[in-house]
Design a protein around this nucleic acid. Structure first.
Length: 226
DNA sequence: CCCTGATTCGC
DNA sequence: GCGAATCAGG
């Protein structure tokens, strides 16, 4: 599997949306988590909250057993005189304990990052935006009332999250949070998370905007091999 | 153990 | 450029 422009776009989008590398890899298919991370770095996409990065600046004297001591370069400041001069800390680590300016929740955020490309990821990754149909701000918390999850009559007979199995089409119907949100529930197209019909919708190529999408090519035989 | 992202380095 | 192997924190 190679990094086509489209896949790179999806990677960027999902990465910025805060999906984990595993999720992204899974969503794209054909690549490993490492591949995603590697690519993200090469692209210059940069570190969001990483578990292994709270601090740590310079400290590479005894790399366990790596094959090379690439950077054993401690820039000797050649500071003569000054006897008893205490190690002036590290020249490059002033007082900036919070290098992550945007470490907020990945959800309700709109940093206004210009993103002209069109991307289209299936409902699993939940991205469907483009210059034309950008998502509304999703602003004020809807005055919806949280209710003690009683089996409302609306979802009676519907496929809920708990009903999902590997053989059940997981295409979402409606939107999460809405009272009648449920899943398609049809038998899946074997090997895919959705039924044949929804596979057709999930994996179609992005049409040029303006084009009315005709009936999806139904006899699904599309891409994505896992 | 599982998960995460970061980094290195042979290809 | 790519990604497995490795590292390292939660």
């Amino acid at each position: 599997m190679s990094w086509t422009d489209e896949r790179i776009d999806q990677l960027k989008a999902m990465w910025e949306r805060g999906l984990t590398a595993s999720q992204i890899a899974d969503e794209l298919g054909g690549v490993s988590r490492n591949a995603v991370i590697g690519k993200a770095h090469r692209l210059g996409l940069q570190s969001r909250p990483s578990p292994v990065k709270a601090n740590e600046v310079p400290k590479k004297a005894a790399p366990p057993l790596r094959k090379s001591a690439t950077e054993a370069e401690a820039p000797k400041p050649a500071a003569p005189a000054q006897h008893a001069a205490p190690p002036p800390a590290r020249p490059a680590a002033p007082a900036a304990p919070t290098p992550a300016p945007a470490a907020a929740a990945p959800a309700a955020e709109a940093p206004a990052a210009p993103q002209p490309r069109i991307i289209s990821v299936g409902p699993g990754g939940f991205l469907r935006q483009g210059p034309g149909d950008q998502q509304a701000p999703i602003p004020p918390a809807p005055p919806r009332r949280l209710v003690p999850a009683k089996p409302s009559p609306e979802i009676a007979g519907k496929t809920t999250l708990l009903d999902l199995t590997e053989r059940i089409c997981k295409w979402p119907m409606g939107h999460p949070g809405e009272p009648d949100f449920h899943f398609c529930g049809e038998a899946v197209n074997p090997g895919f998370p959705y039924c044949v019909e929804h596979c057709g919708r999930a994996y179609q190529a992005q049409l040029p905007r303006g084009t009315r999408r005709p009936p999806p090519p139904l006899p699904f035989g599309g891409p994505r091999v896992r």
